[in-house]
Design a protein around this nucleic acid. Structure first.
Length: 591
DNA sequence: GCCGTTTTCGGCCCGACTGTTTTCAGTCG
């Protein structure tokens, strides 16, 4: 017989919990960008193309899941850059998992043409010509056509175009560089430029100045009476391997590791306007220039103009003032709400390095660190910290000589002894405990309960289905002895397409159980990215900025974590380790 | 396709550089 099923009502419905199959924001944004590319190849109206790109950007920077919004019946037209048409298309995409328009476009335009589009120097017009005139629909065909001379014979193409295609065809990538790697290339160049005669100001701009965690290329702005000196100096620099283009005010070079650098030379009185212009982001600049238009002003890299008269531009403050805004920190210039916040007088007072009082993730010689507990503590004290946590690896990380229960207890005893004899800094007994493949923890509850600070992390089994990964994270969050999830996304996103992990569910659980999330400043990988850190913060989850230092030198990386926190709009009060030790410990759940 | 303190049409940011042209289109940031 049939049982009457009671209506299934979850015990508690979180607003952030979503269906497990829900399509994630990055996937949606990617589809919109594909539509834009394909429309462009078809020669569609460029403003229509831009509308799709703008919508994609809106979705990328949402701090909540679009699928959840659809599920809750929210009006997508409230979102910027989403109108009636796109709201309908996106709703259908969320419900059906596919964007019909994209599928239709892919039937008309061979998908390989999108690869042709990625080659430096080839845009939609040229890619379309190659496809329609020569039947080029993938990179192999392109190479053959360039080599045979077919490309050079096309109208609007020539010998140089064909050569450029062959030179760039193996260099198709959207590669981005970690900020630290970019810094190591940039610093020596800045130093050389600053030392050169005839150059006044030298400043990095672009995404580097906006302190993005990765950069696609570098931008350097120089003021000088004559641009030749600056350009020659750059061209002669030992880490510059090739000059890609060079004009009177603008030059682009390739550096040793394939990172590219733009140099712009502007006159002194344009410095502020140029800094603003070249710092971007593009989306931010578009908004500023539009505000200028509304006030009958023209804004470019040389200044703010009313008619032919320059009315501002020596400083960034002047540029913002001309469009009735106060100065906006570079980290916020992404058109992610900074204009609205500035108008409402609600720009956040961003966190500073000096606000940080504790560092709660570091290693010692007990596992894979280079320095002792005492050395780490002394170095942290020198940096002005009031407290630290020593968090060596647990035993599963055998290649890092991870600690089992017995060694951990001995390690913690040593911390007690050092604490008793150290002044001016407090050392917490911590552990970076692995979340194993079966969703249990690497150390049992009894020993974990004896510590002050337990960070749970994923190191292994990251190729498991995302459902199992989520199960492991949730199990760790629900363990009463766990205080924080360490580098929450870094290790996952390294191995997996980010679209698969449902952070809505993850955040909801962390919030519910009072578990902190870590922004990890370790330089060798990406971590909780800025959009998600902002989302976590909006969900009311305290964040902790740590260095994951493996030596006393590694403690210097706190700045990188703070940089990222600033990009996430975080203020002092959003970050737990800006508190005194006593206040910090009050935040931790009692186990 | 989006948007609106010139609001339902008619706009949509702006300039530098390259390679192809012979005055400019395409690409890029």
């Amino acid at each position: 017989m049939m049982w009457l099923m009671p209506e299934i009502v979850p015990a508690r419905v979180s607003p952030y919990r979503s269906r497990r199959s829900a399509v994630q924001n990055p996937t949606i944004a990617e589809k919109l960008n594909d539509v834009a590319d394909l429309l462009e190849l078809e020669g569609a109206n460029s403003f229509r193309v831009r509308a799709y790109r703008n919508a994609a950007r809106t979705i990328e920077s949402l701090t909540q899941s679009l699928s959840d919004m659809v599920e809750r019946g929210e009006d997508l037209e409230e979102l910027p850059n989403i109108g009636k048409d796109l709201a309908e298309k996106l709703t259908a995409l969320v419900n059906e998992g596919e964007l019909k328009q994209l599928q239709e476009l892919k039937q008309r335009v061979p998908p390989g043409v999108l690869d042709v589009l990625r080659i430096d120097g080839l845009g939609p017009k040229k890619a379309a010509t190659l496809w329609k005139e020569l039947g080029v629909t993938d990179l192999d065909q392109l190479q053959a056509a360039a080599e045979s001379g077919d490309v050079a014979s096309l109208k609007g193409f020539g010998k140089k175009t064909a050569e450029k295609i062959l030179a760039n065809i193996d260099r198709v990538s959207d590669r981005r560089f970690l900020r630290v790697d970019a810094r190591n290339m940039l610093e020596p160049i800045l130093e050389t430029l600053r030392a050169a005669d005839g150059i006044d100001q030298v400043s990095p701009a672009g995404s580097y100045r906006r302190r993005r965690e990765t950069v696609g290329d570098l931008d350097v702005l120089v003021t000088a009476k004559e641009s030749k000196v600056a350009m020659d100096t750059l061209a002669d620099h030992e880490i510059v391997v090739e000059t890609l283009s060079r004009g009177d005010t603008k030059m682009r070079v390739r550096l040793e590791n394939d990172l590219e650098l733009d140099l712009r030379v502007v006159p002194e009185q344009s410095y502020g306007a140029a800094m603003h212009y070249f710092t971007g982001s593009k989306a931010h600049n578009v908004r500023v220039r539009r505000r200028g238009q509304e006030r009958d002003l023209k804004i470019n890299e040389y200044g703010v103009f009313r008619g032919d008269e320059r009315i501002a531009g020596a400083t960034e403050e002047e540029v913002f003032e001309a469009v009735d805004l106060r100065w906006i920190p570079p980290e916020l210039r992404e058109d992610r709400g900074e204009f609205e916040a500035a108008e409402a007088g609600e720009l956040p007072d961003l966190i500073e390095l000096s606000d940080i009082r504790g560092d709660l993730h570091m290693h010692t010689t007990a596992s894979d660190g280079k320095n002792s507990i005492r050395e780490m503590a002394e170095a942290a004290k020198q940096r002005g910290l009031d407290y630290i946590a020593i968090t060596d690896h647990s035993k599963r990380v055998s290649m890092a000589n991870g600690l089992d229960a017995k060694r951990l207890r001995k390690h913690w005893k040593e911390i007690d002894e050092i604490n008793a004899d150290l002044d001016g800094i407090e050392v917490l007994k911590g552990i970076e405990c692995d979340i194993l493949e079966d969703a249990t923890l690497d150390l049992d509850d009894e020993v974990l309960s004896e510590g002050d600070w337990v960070i749970a992390v994923l190191h292994y089994g990251l190729k498991q289905p995302s459902k199992q990964i989520m199960k492991r994270l949730l199990a760790a969050i629900e363990n009463p002895h766990v205080h924080a999830i360490g580098h929450p996304t870094g290790r996952i996103l390294e191995k997996r397409p980010e679209a698969e992990i449902d952070f809505g569910e993850f955040f909801a659980a962390a919030k519910e159980h009072g578990v902190l999330l870590e922004i990890n400043a370790g330089p060798e990988r990406l971590d909780l990215d800025d959009v998600r850190a902002k989302a976590a913060c909006e969900h009311g989850i305290p964040l902790v900025i740590n260095t994951d230092a493996h030596s006393t030198r590694g403690l210097a990386n706190m700045q990188l974590g703070v940089d990222q926190a600033r990009r996430s709009w975080l203020t002092k009060s959003d970050v737990a380790n800006t508190r005194t030790l006593k206040q910090f410990q009050k935040l931790l759940r009692k186990s």
